[in-house]
């Protein structure tokens, strides 16, 4: 086998994932290179989120292999992956309490402490039509759309360049959806894997993985 080029970030080979005797993922193979823009589609329960969770080490896979930059997933590597991948989950269950305190906590970790950029934060608030007043509200009381935009902004503030985005535009109106997609697709260096039903994510040069077809193709 030829040596993999360094631009390959993620490689999944014949990955299966079973939960309570039910097969969630079956023989999934996927290769992601630096700068790729990938859209994952498919009905709920098709195991889309499981792909993210298994790469981040939140869920052990049943069989198959996952490589990150050529290295097999293990308990040391996952901590490294988590420092390199920005993950925005579907539930947007990212914290509680006053928003600004929550953000400060997120940027108090050893790996994030130097990354916080207040100017960038405020400019992104303006860009995504978020009122600065929500910084002083409780996160629990924000609307679904506000939570989503906040989670998106935080993911960008972490200054990572690999993004796992799980239905991050579902609660936004179409203008905002387009804006968010523009932001993520505009940087050629960024590797974007997005799970979404929104047509805004479908563009030229975007690789589409349809899980329904993959799973039925057997």
């Amino acid at each position: 086998m030829p040596k993999k080029t360094t631009s390959e970030i993620i490689k999944m080979d014949n990955v299966c994932f079973n939960l309570d005797n039910k097969q969630i993922l079956k023989d999934l193979s996927l290769s992601v290179n630096r700068g790729d823009k990938i859209l994952i589609k498919g009905k709920s329960g098709a195991g889309k989120t499981t792909v993210f969770r298994s790469i981040l080490g939140f869920q052990p896979i049943s069989s198959g292999t996952i490589l990150f930059k050529g290295e097999g997933l293990n308990s040391e590597l996952v901590w490294n992956i988590r420092k390199k991948v920005a993950y925005v989950s579907q539930e947007c269950d990212i914290g509680e309490g006053i928003v600004i305190d929550m953000i400060k906590e997120m940027f108090s970790y050893r790996s994030t402490a130097s990354k916080f950029d207040n100017k960038k934060l405020l400019s992104m608030f303006a860009e995504l039509s978020l009122s600065e007043s929500i910084l002083h509200k409780k996160f629990e009381f924000l609307s679904g759309g506000e939570k989503q935009r906040l989670a998106i902004i935080i993911s960008i503030l972490t200054q990572k360049d690999i993004f796992f985005l799980d239905e991050v535009t579902s609660d936004l109106d179409s203008t905002l959806k387009k804006k968010v997609v523009d932001i993520f697709y505009s940087n050629p260096q960024w590797t974007i894997i997005s799970i979404s039903h929104d047509p805004e994510w479908v563009r030229q040069d975007v690789n589409i993985f349809d899980f329904e077809k993959l799973q039925e193709g057997e």
Binding site: R82, K83, V85, D93, I94, E96, M106, T112
Partner: peptide, 10 residues
């Protein structure tokens, strides 16, 4: 929420 904070790099 805990997993999210791990994913932030905590």
């Amino acid at each position: 929420r805990y997993l999210y904070h791990l994913s932030l790099g905590a």
